[in-house]
Design a protein around this nucleic acid. Structure first.
Length: 347
DNA sequence: AACGATTACAACCGCGCGAAA
DNA sequence: CTTTCGCGCGGTTGTAATCGT
């Protein structure tokens, strides 16, 4: 039998949409909803395939789409999430309200990728490129490999604050309204000295042992609540709570603390649980980070968190006032701080 | 003003996944 | 269990707009 084509290609229009076509599609969806995309075009009087209609709707006509220039905050969110998730544009988009995956993907390819390259960073690994390092000297490579971990740690800390803020004000991005229950102290047992990351990670789902391990690193998270830039950042919590990075990190922490099966408690859906599980299992950087946390409980305590850029980009139409130099110096600052911090890690 | 090069973004294409039959 | 279908995702392409000479 085989699979039938998604649409009859003969006689169907391709290329840019006209205003008239947009109008027809909008009118139909407003009146009937999109229903089956495949069946929509003839009903709406369009000479397009259903796929083309769906794309036009999801990427352009949908009323809840924010268009226009990306803010500095959004740029940072994309870069940070991309460092963790890679090219999972739809997932990244889900943490940036009102932006489509297509728009984010395009923005990455045309702006952010080049920006990172310009700054000497590999846009795939988010690490400094080899030629800038004298071709991979072990010490440098080892130090710089912690860059993503550092950023992840920062996200984690921010997420913690966000979550705490949600306990007071529950109008945040998601439906987390119930704090994770306190863990019984009796569960805490000595951490294994060295663990295979994947085993640890995969063992996390549904076993109490891993919860013990994460309890272990939880204790070291105390250091993350020190009054640093993170708290400055959280001063703008009304906006920051909607920020995608915080949302992602918040979900991540919720998942670590309440893995599969606990979704009912935290208001997550099974889909969200599955998504988070997939992300975490497939992110080498997250796995590395967790590995370090497990190996060195005080790993994070050696860090000094740098300030976010003075403009912070969190509130108001400040983006136009942000000079390119400021943006570059912000990211350079991150790298410098990570590098110098990691030269003498405090384990 | 004209023209080629570059950039930005909308749209297309092919693949894979999950649900339904 | 297998097949079919619908949909969404990520990669790629096409083209309009902008820039530089």
């Amino acid at each position: 039998m085989g699979r039938s084509p998604c649409c009859d290609k003969v006689g169907l229009k391709k290329g840019p949409w006209t205003a008239e076509e947009d109008q027809k599609l909008l009118a139909y969806i407003h009146q009937h909803g999109h229903g089956s995309w495949r069946a929509l075009p003839p009903k709406a009087g369009l000479q397009r395939c259903g796929k083309s209609c769906r794309l036009r709707w999801t990427n352009y006509l949908r009323p809840d789409i924010k268009r226009g220039k990306f803010s500095l905050q959004e740029e940072q969110t994309i870069i940070q999430l991309h460092a963790l998730l890679g090219n999972r544009w739809s997932t990244i988009a889900s943490y940036l309200s009102k932006r489509t995956d297509n728009e984010i993907k395009n923005y990455w390819n045309t702006h952010l990728k080049k920006k990172l390259i310009k700054m000497g960073l590999d846009p795939i690994t988010h690490k400094p490129r080899n030629h800038a390092l004298g071709c991979g000297q072990p010490k440098d490579v080892a130090n710089l490999s912690h860059m993503a971990q550092w950023e992840s740690a920062r996200l984690e800390a921010e997420a913690r604050i966000v979550r705490e803020s949600k306990l007071v004000n529950s109008n945040g991005y998601n439906s987390i309204v119930v704090p994770p229950p306190p863990r019984p102290s009796s569960v805490v047992t000595p951490r294994p000295p060295c663990l295979d990351v994947l085993k640890v990670w995969q063992g996390a789902w549904g076993t109490s042992g891993i919860r013990t391990n994460f309890n272990g690193f939880s204790t070291s998270k105390v250091a993350l609540t020190s009054p640093t830039s993170i708290l400055k950042f959280s001063d703008n919590m009304d906006t920051a709570s909607k920020d995608g990075v915080n949302s992602f990190a918040s979900d991540m922490i919720d998942y670590v603390e309440n893995p599969a099966g606990a979704c009912a408690i935290n208001g997550r859906t099974n889909n969200q649980d599955g998504e988070m599980k997939g992300i975490m299992e497939n992110s080498l950087q997250i796995q590395d980070m967790i590995a370090d946390w497990l190996r060195y409980p005080s790993f994070l305590e050696g860090f000094t968190f740098t300030d976010l850029p003075p403009v912070s980009g969190v509130t108001g139409p400040v983006d136009n006032a942000v000079s390119e130099d400021n943006k570059i110096s912000y990211w350079s600052n991150i790298l410098t701080t990570v590098d110098s911090t990691m030269d003498s890690p405090v384990f």
